[in-house]
Structure formats: structure tokens, C-alpha cells
């Protein structure tokens, strides 16, 4: 199918715009998360999103209303992970594990109470960016603006806290607040990313473009810009390939991301050993 023909479809235009916006968010936040060893927070919040989607479906909320309903649940859960890690004398990975398991358990329980897993829930598990509606695209654009504004406003504090939390604190930076901002922005992004790659693969979109950029970049800003470019390219190519070859979009995007990572990793190894 010709590219021009593909681009002439309204659903394809929405998918490419929405996918690109979400890819930028995932990639930018991914750099901070990967370097802070918080990569799996995306997975944890995705599992909470699964519980929230089941809850929304239980109350028969769909599409636009579902997104609005699950945002506060995921935001509160994100803060819950932070508080657990700070107060329950456990490391962040254990806190993520606890909240993540709770999300899945609630999701399964609600799905069971509502008569078993249904098609709707499965579509959220694996994502379908091609079905993004106009209203959902508007939500994505608004949240994109919110998250990017948050990153830009707190960029230097985020950078300092990511480099070394103790040094950042000694410079008068309220690292507790900065951590809360980072996980809240991540929570908003996870809700959006669910539509692109599905709950099961969200963490891949947060980790892979960032991990690829970290193979290639020299300098922090360069790494962020590089990750965003890789994120957008892989999502756009993934949508195109999946549509042309009739493949599942989320899985295609993740596999293309993985191939890109492998290529960058190999290139870096070659350069280093030359």
C-alpha cells in the first residue's frame, strides 16, 4: 500500500499523531527512569492501569470517560509506590511489586465479578493505537502538553536528582518533591501509552528508546533528544509496518524498538573495540 494512501485515512493520521506524542513522552521520561533504576515503575503502573481499566469497565465507562476515570487511580498509586518505599523500610522495587500485584489482583477480581474477561479488557492489554478516537487524541495532546511542561519546568532539578540524590539535596533541592513529580508525570504517560502498545508492553516503550539513546549519546540533553527521536521513529515505522503487513501494532512497535536497541548496542561495541 502506498504511503500517501495510508496517510489519507483519518484513523491513520490520528494514530501517527497520537503515537508520536506518546512516544516522545515515554522516551523523555524513560531517560530519567532508566538512569534512576526506576525502569520497572512503568510495569508496576501498567498493572495498576489494568486494575483501573477493569474497574472502569465494571462501571461501563469506555474510551474518553475511561481515560478520565483511570487517571486519578493511577496517580494515587504512583504516590503510593513512593510512600511505601520511603516509609515501609523497603526498596523501590519491592514497593513497585506490591502495588503492581494489587493492581493485577483487583483487575482479575473485578473482571471475574463482571462475568469473566471480555474483549474490551483484552484490547487494553495489547493496545490498539489505530482505534484512537478524536476525543482520546485531544486528551493525549493535553496530557502531552502537561507532561512536557512539567519536564521543562523541573528539568534541572530532575537532572540533578537523577545524577546524585544526596548532592542534589545538599544543593537545597527538595528531592522528595522532585521524585513525586517524576512518578506523577510517568503515571500520566502510562495511561496514555496503554493505547499505543497495551498494558503488557508499556514498560518497553519507557525503557527501550531510552536504553538505545544511552548507547549513542554524549551529554544529558543529547540523550533526551536522541531518545525522543528514536521513540517517534520506531512508533511511526511500527504503525506503518503493522498496518501494511496486518500485524499487531503494539508488538510490532516493541520489536522494532528492540532491533534498534540491538543495532545501537552493536555499533557502540564495534566503535569501542576498534
Amino acid at each position: 500500500m502506498a504511503i500517501t494512501e495510508m496517510l489519507s485515512y483519518g484513523f491513520m493520521q490520528r494514530a501517527l499523531i497520537g503515537g508520536s506524542l506518546i512516544a516522545i513522552l515515554c522516551s523523555v521520561l524513560g531517560i530519567f527512569l532508566v538512569l534512576r533504576r526506576l525502569s520497572l515503575i512503568g510495569d508496576g503502573l501498567a498493572h495498576v492501569t489494568f486494575g483501573s481499566v477493569a474497574l472502569a469497565l465494571f462501571f461501563r465507562l469506555y474510551s474518553f470517560y475511561m481515560t478520565l476515570a483511570i487517571i486519578p487511580v493511577v496517580l494515587v498509586s504512583a504516590l503510593g509506590i513512593l510512600k511505601l518505599a520511603q516509609r515501609a523500610r523497603i526498596y523501590g522495587d519491592a514497593a513497585i511489586g506490591i502495588v503492581s500485584a494489587l493492581g493485577i489482583a483487583l483487575g482479575v477480581m473485578l473482571a471475574s465479578l463482571s462475568g469473566g474477561f471480555n474483549v474490551d479488557l483484552f484490547s487494553y492489554l495489547f493496545g490498539n493505537i489505530l482505534s484512537i478516537s478524536r476525543d482520546e487524541l485531544i486528551i493525549a495532546a493535553v496530557l502531552f502538553a502537561v507532561v512536557i511542561a512539567g519536564v521543562l519546568v523541573f528539568y534541572n532539578d530532575l537532572f540533578a536528582s537523577t545524577f546524585d540524590e544526596e548532592l542534589a539535596k545538599s544543593s537545597g533541592i527538595d528531592t522528595g518533591r522532585i521524585n513525586a513529580i517524576l512518578v506523577l508525570l510517568t503515571a500520566l504517560t502510562v495511561v496514555l501509552a496503554m493505547k499505543v502498545v497495551g498494558i503488557m508492553l508499556i514498560s518497553a516503550l519507557l525503557i527501550l528508546p531510552a536504553a538505545t539513546a544511552l548507547q549513542l549519546s554524549k551529554g544529558f540533553k543529547t540523550a533526551i533528544v536522541c531518545a525522543a527521536c528514536i521513540g517517534v521513529c520506531t512508533v511511526v515505522v511500527g504503525i506503518g509496518v503493522s498496518f501494511s503487513a496486518n500485524l499487531p501494532t503494539g508488538a510490532t512497535i516493541v520489536l522494532i524498538n528492540f532491533l534498534t536497541f540491538l543495532t545501537a548496542f552493536a555499533a557502540r561495541s564495534l566503535i569501542r573495540h576498534r
Binding site: L35, I173, G219, F220
Partner: peptide
């Protein structure tokens, strides 16, 4: 006040920061 610890808390040798970027962080205070 300037603070210099024994080393970085969890130093990641692959952290993508240039020397001048790290020094500039001191100006944030």
C-alpha cells in the same frame, strides 16, 4: 556551602553527563 562526599551515592559509569554539565549543577543551589 559546598559539599564533596566520598563519592557519588550510586555512581553509574554510563551516566551521560559531560564534565561541564556536572559542574554547572552546583549553580542550582
Amino acid at each position: 556551602i559546598g559539599y564533596l562526599p566520598q563519592g557519588l551515592q550510586f555512581f553509574n559509569p554510563h551516566f551521560p553527563a559531560k564534565v561541564e554539565e556536572v559542574i554547572r549543577l552546583g549553580r542550582l543551589s
